[in-house]
């Protein structure tokens, strides 16, 4: 009798506690749809943000992640994957979502630095000791050098690779569009296989042992070294390369329907905080806040907005649309 009374009291107390916390603190779930190489970055960042948000509001926020090729992910969001946030490889893919009315126009001006809280670039991953002496883009077209890069039709990273090579040739003394096209054509002749995504290419280079050099996102190259052994590969940062600005944005339509706009915006702003920037730096992204120290080598950057390209819309049309320069110069190696 006494015992059962005690139990009842405890149950009541537990119930009261449970309801009171339920009233005070909400459970929020966000879905961050991202591209392939950011898995490790966001796994750590999500934990950091959840702790920050708990401290600030008392709410428990769980951020779910989905990763894949940037273009494919954008397509999934267009088809109804309910992302509160996208963090993709290039602005072109976010533009595609905005075109369908899911994001308000002018999204890229909502956050500092073109809505890119971190930047990255394209570097070379080579076999240990760099036996083929690959130092700069010019070395990639030498005969007998086998280059691994994914297919720019399907992979965001591969488009950056392609454009980086193009920019290099374009900016050489006496460089022009025809010279750049010729250079990239020569480079593609050295590519034995085009995988569909960045991780696929990394696996081809690392696991299957194909190729002398992998063109990779800077963070992917360092991650591959850390995961698979510094005794097998070296990262070569070329003295000049392209500046990649992977943009982030709230999917307005979805966030408003979910009622998650506040926390979604806070999430993206937190990427710009010192803590967020440090997490990015730890995962070998280049923080936009120059006060945050980085281990990455200085590079002379070309930009997608330079006159060589004229922005993503134009670059996409010129180079990667059907019949564009890529189609003109790429013939699979037989």
């Amino acid at each position: 009798m006494k015992l059962s009374k005690l139990t009842t009291a405890f149950t009541a107390l537990a119930l009261a506690l449970a309801t009171s916390t339920a009233v005070l603190a909400a459970n929020v779930t966000l879905l961050n749809v991202s591209y392939d190489p950011t898995r490790e970055l966001y796994t750590e960042f999500n934990k950091s943000f959840a702790a920050y948000w708990k401290g600030k509001t008392g709410d428990t926020v769980t951020v779910k992640q989905s990763h894949g090729g940037s273009g494919k992910q954008a397509r999934a969001v267009i088809d109804g994957l309910e992302a509160d946030i996208v963090t993709l490889a290039l602005a072109y893919d976010v533009d595609a979502i905005a075109e369908k009315g899911l994001i308000k126009p002018g999204w890229q001006k909502e956050l500092p630095h073109n809505s890119a809280p971190y930047t990255s670039t394209i570097v070379f991953l080579v076999r240990k000791g760099n036996p083929k002496k690959i130092k700069n883009w010019g070395d990639l077209i030498k005969p007998g050098v086998s280059v691994i890069t994914p297919n720019p039709k399907t992979s965001g990273g591969a488009r950056w690779n392609y454009l980086a090579a193009w920019a290099f040739a374009f900016h050489q003394p006496g460089g022009n569009e025809a010279k750049a096209k010729e250079f990239v054509a020569k480079l593609l002749k050295n590519v034995p296989v085009l995988d569909s995504g960045a991780r696929g290419s990394t696996n081809t280079f690392v696991q299957r042992g194909m190729g002398d050099v992998l063109l990779a996102w800077e963070n992917e190259a360092f991650l591959a070294i850390n995961e698979l052994g510094p005794d097998k590969f070296d990262v070569i940062t070329p003295p000049e390369s392209i500046l990649a600005e992977p943009p982030v944005t709230v999917i307005d339509k979805v966030a408003d329907r979910h009622g998650t706009r506040n926390v979604a915006e806070a999430y993206l702003n937190y990427l710009y905080s010192d803590e967020g920037q440090k997490v990015a730096a730890r995962h070998y992204y280049r923080p936009v806040n120059t006060r945050i120290p980085t281990r990455l080598a200085k590079v002379k950057f070309y930009r997608i907005d330079d006159k060589a390209f004229g922005g993503w819309q134009k670059a996409q049309k010129t180079h990667f649309a059907d019949g564009g320069t890529f189609d003109q110069i790429y013939a699979p190696v037989k």
């Binding site: 879905l31 392939d36 898995r39 490790e40 779910k64 992640q65 989905s66 990763h67 894949g68 999934a76 994957l81 991780r199 696929g200 696996n203 991650l223 591959a224 995961e227 698979l228």
Partner: peptide, 22 residues
């Protein structure tokens, strides 16, 4: 699937994800 971790990944899809994460 949409590949949302912990929500819409089946076993075969999860195998691919793990492989891609080294």
């Amino acid at each position: 699937s949409g590949h949302i971790r912990g929500m819409t990944n089946t076993v075969p899809l999860h195998v691919e994800i793990l492989y891609n994460e080294y």
